[in-house]
């Protein structure tokens, strides 16, 4: 089968993985920083370099993500929903529900035992239920996303957010800071807002165990905990929750090519 690469060129992060005969051998993640072509080239190069491969060794490239058209190599374009479902299935075959929170939208997918999309739901075209908000707020609060979980556990009175606009959510967060709301409460409030929003999508899907959450936001343990409370199910998080899309892209491409 040889080597296959998978790329997921998102609006916030670009990710690349390399597979050798169906086994994940390397991955690389870096911020896209507004330049899709450069980011795509870079992550692929780094991922290959990690296992000492040259581009010529690759038999196939599969890709997904907003910036997919800016990849300079020949590749196979696959929709993100299929990629994430498949990628999670590869890492955790028993999973039946995937909650993926990307930079611009949130998605809930149910997967068949073979890793296909049994059902899916994508959030409205509004940045509220997306990772973008976390990013914006972490900037306001000058805190890493990874710290969000720990901080939100300390919250006593979660702040309320209900605006539907990421930009104004930022304003609201700033006002809360100005009013003296502790940072923990702001984060907890934000987690609650997101958990409510995404939780309702999950309810709609009548989800099944096992359930997994992916996307950079999954590193926010506070949100995961609140989501668990919201949906009444344990949620697992892959060690590297951002690369499931790239994994799926590689696997589906290889599979399609072999058939």
């Amino acid at each position: 089968m040889g080597y296959t690469a998978g790329l997921d060129i998102g609006s916030a992060y670009s990710k690349a993985v390399v597979f050798e005969d169906g086994e994940l051998v390397s991955y690389y993640v870096k911020p896209t920083s507004g330049n899709f072509s450069l980011a795509a080239d870079l992550v692929l190069e780094e991922a290959l370099q990690k296992v000492g491969l040259s581009l010529a060794k690759l038999r196939y490239i599969g890709a997904c993500g907003l910036g997919v058209t800016f990849i300079s190599e020949t590749f196979n374009k696959i929709t993100e929903l299929s990629c994430h479902t498949r990628g999670v299935h590869y890492l955790m075959p028993s999973v039946r529900t995937v909650i993926e929170i990307g930079n611009q939208s949130a998605r809930v997918m149910k997967t068949t035992p073979k890793g296909k999309v049994a059902d899916s739901l994508v959030s409205d075209k509004c940045a509220t239920g997306s990772g973008r908000i976390m990013q914006i707020i972490s900037k306001v609060l000058r805190t890493d996303l990874e710290q969000f979980g720990k901080l939100s556990e300390k919250a006593t009175k979660p702040a309320k957010f209900t605006t539907n606009c990421a930009v104004f959510l930022e304003t609201e967060a700033i006002s809360r800071v100005a009013e003296g709301t502790p940072r923990e409460d702001i984060i907890a409030g934000l987690n609650q807002t997101l958990a409510g929003k995404i939780g309702s999508m999950v309810h709609r899907m009548r989800i099944e165990a096992d359930c997994v959450m992916t996307g950079g936001v999954a590193l926010n343990a506070g949100l995961v905990a609140m989501m668990e409370k919201e949906i009444g199910l344990k949620i697992q998080v892959p060690e590297q929750p951002m690369i499931t899309g790239a994994i799926g892209a590689a696997l589906i491409t290889a599979e399609k090519a072999e058939n």
Binding site: G34, F36, L66, T69, F70, A127, C165
Partner: peptide, 15 residues
């Protein structure tokens, strides 16, 4: 006209 999405649009146009 949503800032967040206009941002992406701007990037796409740039690319």
């Amino acid at each position: 006209l949503c800032t967040v999405f206009a941002e992406q649009e701007a990037l796409l146009r740039l690319s």
